Amino acid sequence: MTKEYYLYVGGQKIKVSKQIYKVYWQEREHEKYLEQVDKKNHLLFFSSLNHDGNFEDNLEDKSVDVEKVVATQMMIEALRNAMSKLNKDEREIIERLYF
């Protein structure tokens, strides 16, 4: 008696050949292995961020005000640039007053 092989497609039980059955399960096992490797290496898939179809809102870190960070960095850069133009005595006065 020959063994029959079945796969479920769309909730329906479909009879398939032994070769198709083996290939299907090889692929499934390979996918599971790759997922385990990814979890072990702490990889994050972009598709896992698609909760509602809006990737950008799910990627945004609302706890960080990027505009404020950029503005602060620009002010620090301008300050460093201005400080580099001061002579030794002027820099010493600034350092004594503020540092």
Rank of each mutant, 00 (worst) to 15 (best):
E95S: 14
E56H: 04
N41M: 15
I76L: 03
I94P: 02
G53Y: 00
M83N: 06
S17H: 03
G11E: 00
S47R: 15
V23Q: 07
Y24C: 05
E77M: 10
F45P: 04
E77R: 03
V37M: 07
R28K: 15
K3T: 13
E27I: 15
K32D: 05
Y24A: 04
Y8N: 15
F45R: 10
K88I: 13
E77A: 11
F99E: 14
N87C: 05
D57F: 07
Q12D: 13
K40P: 02
N58Y: 03
D38P: 01
Y98T: 04
G53T: 06
Q36F: 10
K32A: 10
L49W: 03
L49R: 00
I20C: 08
T2W: 13
F45I: 05
Y21C: 07
I76C: 02
D52N: 09
L97N: 07
K15H: 01
E77P: 01
N81W: 11
T72N: 02
E56W: 08
R28P: 02
N81L: 12
S48V: 00
V64E: 04
L44E: 02
I20F: 12
S47N: 12
L97S: 02
V70P: 05
I93H: 05
V9R: 15
K18D: 08
E67T: 12
D52A: 06
L44V: 14
L34F: 03
S84F: 09
E95D: 11
D61T: 00
N50C: 08
Q73F: 08
Y24R: 07
V66M: 04
I93K: 13
A71N: 12
N54M: 06
D52F: 03
I93D: 07
L59H: 07
F45N: 10
R28I: 15
D61G: 04
R96C: 08
K62Y: 02
S48G: 07
L44I: 10
V16P: 01
D89H: 09
V64F: 01
V64H: 00
Q73D: 11
K13R: 13
L34R: 01
E56S: 05
V70C: 05
F45G: 08
Y6T: 06
S84V: 06
K85L: 02
L59F: 01
N54G: 05
K3A: 11
Y33V: 07
D61K: 02
K85V: 01
I93A: 10
A78N: 06
L44K: 12
V70H: 08
V9P: 08
V70Q: 06
V66D: 06
E95C: 13
R80W: 13
V66R: 01
S63L: 02
S63M: 01
L7R: 10
Q73V: 01
A78V: 06
S47I: 15
M83S: 04
V70T: 03
D89Q: 14
K39M: 00
E92K: 11
S17Q: 03
H51L: 11
Q73L: 14
K85Q: 12
E56C: 12
Y8M: 12
N58P: 00
V23T: 05
M75A: 14
S47W: 12
K88V: 15
I14S: 06
